[in-house]
Amino acid sequence: MLDPLVLLALGIVGLLAGFVDAVAGGGGMLSVPALLSAGLPPIQALATNKMQSAIGTTIATYTYWRRGFVSLKALLPSVAVTYAGSLLGAFTVKQVDTSVLDLIVPIALICIAIYFLFAPNLSDADRAARLPFPTLVPLLGFCVGFYDGVFGPGTGSFFTIGFVLLFGLGITRAAGNTKLLNLVSNLAALTIFITSGDVVWPAVFAMAVGQIMGGYIGAHAGIRFGAKLIRPLVVVISIAMAIKLLVWP
């Protein structure tokens, strides 16, 4: 049984993580260490983090969608494929050695940070797509969803860079579409975690209150300030995740 003060602290962390997740992704860098510090074993911490994060991401996704920044109809095929990819990744991770990702993922995140930092034309305006959206976004969803099921860190950054670089979306629309597919990917992992009994529900309920507020505030901040907020936060979060993975894998 978690102490009430610990639950209060987790609620505050949930608010901060929800805000970060809604804008740029990467809130797990705050919430997972907090859950581990509260005494949860690693598997329970990861499962509980997925559950509480899904709540905040749902709020953020709904907010972006209400403001017209989520292409829901166009993404429906990708939703199913992303779910399948993440579920397959969650099953695959038990069969393969993923240690090579400890080096590859930080390098990829640093490359994303460099692109968002120095690319001259990144804005909220859509540009010409390099690849056809309807046919190849499902492939993006499957690949990143599979990665999320296998490993996880940086999933939001990989979705965002895909939408911006390959499909020409403005940064705010990219963030909105990212939220939907990231939510679907999390739900696939939760299918396994919940049935295995790994989710610590008191911690989820405490953090959910903060996640709802953080997801709502973060989504509105992302919509209001657009690329001026999302772009630097993606850079900071990507570099921070890369350092975390390299120094504390």
Rank of each mutant, 00 (worst) to 15 (best):
L10C: 05
I12Q: 01
I12H: 01
V13Q: 02
G14A: 04
L15G: 00
A17M: 03
G18T: 01
V20P: 00
D21I: 02
A22F: 04
A24Y: 04
G27H: 00
P33V: 06
L35W: 04
P41K: 07
P42M: 11
Q44V: 05
A47K: 06
T48R: 00
T48C: 05
Q52T: 11
G56A: 01
T57V: 14
T58S: 10
A60T: 01
R66V: 14
G68S: 10
F69A: 14
K73Q: 14
S78E: 07
V79W: 06
A90R: 07
F91T: 09
V93I: 13
V93T: 06
Q95D: 12
V100H: 13
I104Q: 04
A113M: 04
Y115A: 10
F116H: 01
N121W: 06
A128H: 08
F133R: 12
T135G: 15
L136G: 04
L139I: 15
L140I: 10
L140M: 10
G141R: 08
C143K: 03
G145M: 09
G145I: 06
F146L: 15
G149H: 05
V150H: 00
F151W: 13
G156P: 03
S157K: 12
L166A: 12
L166P: 05
I171W: 00
R173I: 07
A174E: 04
A174M: 12
A175I: 11
G176K: 10
K179M: 08
K179N: 11
L183C: 02
L190H: 09
T191I: 08
F193M: 08
V199T: 09
V199W: 07
V204F: 01
F205H: 05
G210I: 02
I212Q: 06
S238M: 10
S238Y: 03
M241S: 15
A242H: 07
A242L: 09
